[in-house]
Design a protein around this nucleic acid. Structure first.
Ligand code: ZN
Ligand code: ZN
Ligand code: ZN
Ligand code: ZN
Lengths: 168, 168
DNA sequence: CTTGACCCTGTAGTGACTACAGGGTGTGCA
DNA sequence: TGCACACCCTGTAGTCACTACAGGGTCAAG
């Protein structure tokens, strides 16, 4: 099977397959005399495994780990569970963050109903005033006194909690 | 005000401020004789505006547009509403996609309860069998006959209805 | 013998930053 | 005066998971 056929069977693009090989996720296939990649059913399974994991939102690093666990049959599956649990936690946090975001955007959207000049637009006014330190519908949940607003939408929280001196 | 002070007041990192200037989001400040950037209260507001919009999940391109609308006072605010509505739609789609993802991960997690060898792990078995074409708990919602599974987790959907990488 | 579909490698681009390298500037203290 | 040290500058390259070429080679059909 050539790469184009594998791409057709998996729904994965040719360049992505080559990328996975470069990244060491997909084992390097045999080559024809002219250098064409020749795939077997085994590699079809390998690629489907990767695509399945990707569809569950796993990073390529996670998938590499998972593939290593898969190869090491006697290894305890505790690490697999940990990986899945971390993935669940990550996704859950993202859901929560995005739900909050949606509420904030809806509150902001509610500031403008009918068409008018930008200078009078409640949305723009809210954004400009918030930039000057005023409380805003989007980041002031419910009649909350909000001094020093600019520190409140903690954009550093998105990274990992604290920002300044963290080194990965 | 030098760049470090602006960073302290906004909670934005120095390199990010320079990045915003390079990207044309923040107007270029005056320079001291030695080339140091000197910021005024106006630019503090500009930066807070950007950070506020970023905290609402807007892209830098959206923020650039919004800033242009802000400058053009007589422009109709219809475009602003459109931008916000699109942002809401985008976030909503992400929430839905991630909620589905969470359910899929929980279903998969449910395949393993107690610690055992990787070879016997229900999670790994599910993933391997799914790669071979079998239906899987994560992508077969409810006793559904699922032939040709590999086409089902439509990885192309990520292009339009983006999955999880947007909000790290 | 040409057309066109397919294959190869290698490089560069995406978004929104982050992390240096390698240098210059300004202030306080002995 | 010398020096430490905090801060500033530019420019480049890295992150992640691809995607998009450029510029070439291979192969079967007509
Ligand atoms: Zn309006
Ligand atoms: Zn707000
Ligand atoms: Zn298990
Ligand atoms: Zn599945």
């Amino acid at each position: 099977m050539l790469i184009g056929e594998l791409a057709r069977q998996t729904g994965c693009e040719v360049e992505t397959i080559r990328y996975y090989e470069r990244e060491g996720l997909l084992s390097a296939p045999q080559r024809s005399s002219s250098g064409y990649r020749r795939y077997t059913a085994e590699q079809l399974g390998e690629l489907n495994f990767i695509l399945h994991c990707r569809s569950l939102g796993m990073s390529l690093a996670d998938i590499r780990n998972l593939a290593a666990f898969k190869a090491d049959h006697d290894h305890d599956c505790e690490d697999i569970n940990l990986l899945i649990d971390q993935q669940i936690a990550k996704v859950h946090q993202q859901v929560e963050a995005l739900r909050l975001l949606e509420q904030q955007l809806l509150a902001l959207r509610d500031k403008c109903h009918e068409s008018h000049a930008a200078a009078d637009c409640g949305i723009l006014q809210t954004l400009v005033e918030a930039a000057e330190g005023a409380p805003c519908v989007c980041h002031t949940p419910f009649g909350q006194d909000n001094h020093g607003h600019s520190q409140d939408y903690d954009h550093t929280a998105k990274k990992n909690g604290r920002s300044n001196k963290d080194r990965p």
